[in-house]
Amino acid sequence: MNVRYMYSLIAVIVLFLLAYAGAEAGVWSQYILGVVIPYLAILVFVVFFIRRIVGWAKSPVPFRIPTTCGQQKTLPWIKSSWLDNPSSRLGVIARMFLEIVFFRSLFRNTKFAVKDQNKPFYALELWLWVGALAFHMAFFTVVARHLRFFTQPVLFPISLLENIDSFFQVGLPGVFISGVVLFAAVTFLLIRRVLIPQVRYISLASDYFPLFLIFGIAFSGLLMRYFSKVDVVGVKEMAMGLVTLHPHIVEGVGAIFYVHVFFVSILLAYFPFSKLMHLGGIFLSPTRNMVNNNRAVRHINPWNYPVEVHTYEEYEEEFRDKMIEAGLPVEKE
């Protein structure tokens, strides 16, 4: 048994029990779970997220070190790769966009296989890419969809998103594809981490914890929607209470709702202290967000300082005789 994922699993189970007990204990604890903790979590999330970014920003980027993944801009007749080796801001923006939205680097995972003797073909090894992309896209959609609880009247783009998301009109209430995909993807990522020895070997407890937590969030969410229904109107009332800064508790909403909210709060509060900060970090990654125009435009290093060098004079001083003998020109005869 791997202690690393056990730690995380136990932590999430403990959190679940806490929330469950709290939801059952009474209105005062529901108030803590439904109002105090969410507010605190958001506060911690925003403040420490910004602090982390500012922390990064306080370190300069002394050198221009993009990873070039294609042909540089060079002689005019050689086709350069404006995207993978951007020579302009625009290229960088496009590169970053594709990286952030479509995880382009993961997509690069081509594999080569020789089928028949001499016919090589390339296949894409895409499971990680598919899993990661599905996870993030679904997560984003689910979060955006939740705005229906936080806006009144519900904004058009949100209802539009809902309609698209429930495109396949299956059953009642209609199934949101994003929720199911999120659950499937987080399960996949979790199983992958546990089952592939290579990945298990490199995984830390802090890699399992958010996965278990998000698994818990997705699971409780699906449960609420499809199986163990909660009072949706009550939920919205509480959400609007938070938004309008007039928070209150609606009774009889169901314990699972508090579990869900507690998990989300924990995730938010945990976020800025963890690897989840890759959300912000990717924007600051110098190997991706820089233009490869190194030789055309000088990059300034704010802490550049003079160093001790071995000057030509010192050099000539040491080797003058030999240089003269060999017929090499010298400064001082």
């Binding site: 939801a23 059952e24 699971f219 699906l222 449960l223 499809y226 199986f227 163990s228 229904k229 909660v230 009072d231 009889g252 909403v253 169901g254 314990a255 699972i256 709702f257």
Partner: peptide, 13 residues
């Protein structure tokens, strides 16, 4: 979800 559902069914909803 079944068992969890049942567990919750007692308390909420």
């Amino acid at each position: 979800a079944g068992p969890v559902h049942n567990a919750f069914a007692v308390s909420g909803g």
